[in-house]
Nucleic acid binder design. Structure first.
Lengths: 100, 100
DNA sequence: CAAACATATTTATAAATCTCGATATATCAA
DNA sequence: TTGATATATCGAGATTTATAAATATGTTTG
């Protein structure tokens, strides 16, 4: 992990809503309803569910999630019209290793 | 570790200079000269040395370090007119545990 | 194809942060 | 006590971020 990536991750973690999303996604089944089409959480949770739980606008959450993916905190997978987000444990570990 | 503290730490880690300071303080003897009075690094490094290495103004670095101490990333110890800063490994671990 | 739905991007304004110089405070040394 | 040194705090202008409404893009379904 290089310094620039690490600080980009720091930016994502500098806001309670974004940090909370990282926490929610540790246990998606505990914090989100099952999706209408995909009956599992293998690829995480769709944008709308995260947006509703966070209580911020669609555009704000979309921007958050895009940035969180760009710096490697999240992995995004498309299934039809839905984007699913899950934690990227590999990058998270690289980040904590770098800090430690 | 609560969410608020975690995001305060995130803010400190959202800037390359501040993150770099955390890295430098992993191995003070490798990145800083020995101090004129204290011949060891048990309490870390004085503000001036950090400021000179970072290349930002004294007031900026002082503010950085104060905030980094407030959120628990650093421990500050006074010896006479000098303040020494070192990493607070306990809080760092609580933070990485919280994220993981 | 057209309508409906999910997500992404653009644009704009308010709020927060960055960074510094100036100044204040604290401590040591003569 | 005075002057020098180290650090902290204040005030301000420049830059960045937060957040949303509007709009665009992509996908499914009738």
């Amino acid at each position: 992990m290089d310094l620039k990536t690490a600080t980009e991750i720091g930016k994502c973690l500098s806001n309670q809503t974004r940090f909370q999303i990282m926490e929610w996604l540790k246990e998606p089944e505990k914090h989100f309803p099952p999706h209408e089409t995909l009956k599992h959480f293998n690829d995480g949770v769709c944008v709308t569910y995260i947006q509703e739980k966070a209580g911020l606008s669609q555009s704000t959450i979309s921007t958050y999630l895009t940035n969180m993916e760009k710096c490697g905190l999240l992995i995004s997978t498309r299934h039809g019209k839905w984007s699913y987000l899950k934690r990227n444990e590999k990058t998270i570990k690289e980040f904590t290793d770098f800090l430690t």
